[in-house]
């Protein structure tokens, strides 16, 4: 009797059932490879688990101890400081340059937009691992491109910043990362109907007025979204920092971004639980940013 009822229900709702099943594979994949490891990480952050040694197997649940340690950890705050500098400056630079590039690709009246697009895309198209090398080849004081050019004009050579300091990371991250803004904002500019500008021109609006009264209101949401996404990406990724730093923190801590600190804590100092706690702090920041992103996700 019950089985018959279930069968009838399935028959009546077959279409909706099929429709719902279509999400399952994607959800399964996301769940397995995103949520499970993340949950695992969060769990670790409440334990005193170590990567090797006794505590690797005989670990115990220690509640919020890692988080309390973290608050009193001087290195954590130094790392936080570096991260804030890195993210704030990167945000401004990546956005400004990307925005300019997007304007040249869309609204500007310059010719050869496909060529411009291709050139502007180059930095993000070469492998990330090469980015620090191309910058060093440019800035190295003795043989670097810039000083070679200056020298050939008889100008004094400069000592450019190119070593393992926050400024280098920002410079490389900006150069390789503005394309993200460019792609997003170019798409936002393109979505503005041409008629709006024509109307504005009919009324004799100046360029600045056109930007302020037509363009800006229409790109406000993608713009905010873009800023949030940049910040999220910068706080999350530490490829360049890792390349300049290696497997252990540098004594001056100038390249020790928060995410890298989490990695070092877990894999250099073997304090896995502590590392995971730092990871979770970042996750919370990203979490909040994502919620903000949703609020503004009207591309």
């Amino acid at each position: 009797m019950k089985i018959l009822k279930i069968k009838a229900w399935i028959r009546d709702n077959l279409d909706q059932i099929v429709l719902s099943l279509l999400i399952v594979p994607a959800l399964a994949l996301i769940f397995t490879f995103q949520f499970i490891p993340a949950a695992w990480t969060i769990w670790f952050s409440f334990t005193d688990m170590a990567l090797i040694g006794k505590k690797a197997l005989n670990w115990s649940f220690i509640g919020f101890k890692n988080y309390l340690d973290l608050i009193t950890d001087v290195y954590f705050w130094r790392s936080m400081n570096v991260t804030i500098q890195y993210c704030a400056v990167s945000l401004v630079l990546r956005f400004t340059i990307g925005m300019l590039a997007a304007l040249f690709m869309t609204l500007s009246k310059v010719k050869g937009k496909i060529f411009i697009a291709a050139v502007f895309l180059l930095p993000s198209a070469i492998p990330g691992i090469m980015h620090p090398y191309v910058w060093i080849s440019m800035l190295e004081p003795n043989y670097g491109t810039l000083n070679t050019i200056l020298g050939s004009f008889g100008l004094p050579r400069q000592s450019w910043t190119y070593g393992a300091v926050t400024e280098s990371l920002i410079m490389i991250n900006t150069w390789a990362g503005y394309t993200f803004t460019m792609i997003l904002m170019a798409s936002a500019f393109k979505s503005i109907p041409r008629e709006y500008y024509e109307v504005a021109e009919v009324y004799g609006a100046s360029r600045w007025q056109k930007f302020r009264k037509v363009t800006f209101p229409l790109i406000k949401f993608p713009l905010i979204l873009c800023l949030i996404l940049i910040f999220k990406e910068d706080i999350d990724d530490f490829t360049y920092a890792y390349m300049f730093t290696g497997e252990s923190p540098r004594p001056d801590f100038k390249t020790e971004l928060l995410s890298l600190y989490a990695y070092h804590k877990a894999f250099h100092y073997y304090e896995l639980g502590f590392g995971c706690a730092v990871g979770f702090i970042i996750a919370i920041i990203v979490f909040v940013l994502t919620l903000l992103q949703l609020k503004f996700a009207r591309l």
């Binding site: 993340a38 969060i42 990695y263 730092v278 996750a283 992103q293 949703l294």
Partner: peptide, 22 residues
């Protein structure tokens, strides 16, 4: 939809060990 978008909130590097084990 929100959960789907939030799924990438944990930095990859913090998940190295669980991900590797999995």
């Amino acid at each position: 939809m929100t959960l789907i978008l939030l799924s990438g909130f944990m930095p990859r590097m913090a998940m190295i060990l669980p991900l590797f084990k999995l």
